[in-house]
């Protein structure tokens, strides 16, 4: 048989970083081979971030890192020192759901819910940077998130409804 992998070695938890997770500074200790996805789910108990392939082919593990949506399955945790991470667990503020969460819940934006955290964060990043996206821009922004349940249309509706709600909240706070 051709090349075997190198002899297995027991992994050890040796890496230590500081990062800001959902607004809170954290000291994180983990096995250094792990991706951000594994550290969030296994070492920090934040299982809201899902995974569907671990190869960057589905978008289920998307989180916001330093303001941009990235795939946590392809981010080395050792590279997260000093970074700010937002996961679905951090979308609620002051006990209030984010308008995207409200809209997805009300308008059929999720069914099985497995792609939902990744889509919510991707959509949040879109609306943070572009408060009034067209449907074409929404389609483009979400084109890295596969969903097998909805057919996407109710997701687009939900993002558009959230966009209106955010604008409305902005008006009232002005």
């Amino acid at each position: 048989m051709a090349a075997k992998r190198e002899a297995p070695v027991e992994s050890q938890k040796t890496a230590r970083i500081k990062m800001v997770l959902n607004g809170e500074a954290q000291d994180v200790v983990f096995a250094p081979y792990k991706t951000l996805l594994e550290v969030l789910r296994e070492d920090l108990g934040h299982t809201g971030t899902k995974h569907g392939c671990e190869l960057g082919e589905c978008g289920a593990c998307a989180v916001i890192m330093d303001g941009k949506p990235v795939l946590s399955c392809l981010v080395l945790a050792v590279d997260c020192d000093g970074r700010e991470i937002l996961t679905v667990e951090g979308m609620e503020t002051d006990g209030r759901l984010h308008p995207l969460q409200e809209a997805f819940a009300d308008l059929g934006g999720m069914q099985c819910g497995y792609c939902t955290p990744g889509i919510l964060l991707t959509a949040k990043s879109l609306l943070d940077h572009n408060p009034h996206p067209s449907r074409a821009e929404i389609r483009e922004a979400l084109s890295g998130n596969l969903c097998r349940c909805t057919g996407y249309l109710q997701i687009f509706d939900a993002v558009e409804a959230a966009m209106v709600e955010i604008a409305k909240r902005g008006e009232t706070t002005k």
């Binding site: 899902k50 667990e89 819940a105 009300d106």
Partner: peptide, 22 residues
């Protein structure tokens, strides 16, 4: 038209799927 009963869990990441159990 009505919000489904399991909606909140799914939009907050609280729903526990099999692989979320540790």
């Amino acid at each position: 038209a009505r919000r489904r009963v399991d909606a909140r869990g799914k939009v907050t990441g609280q729903t526990i799927y099999a692989d979320d159990i540790s």
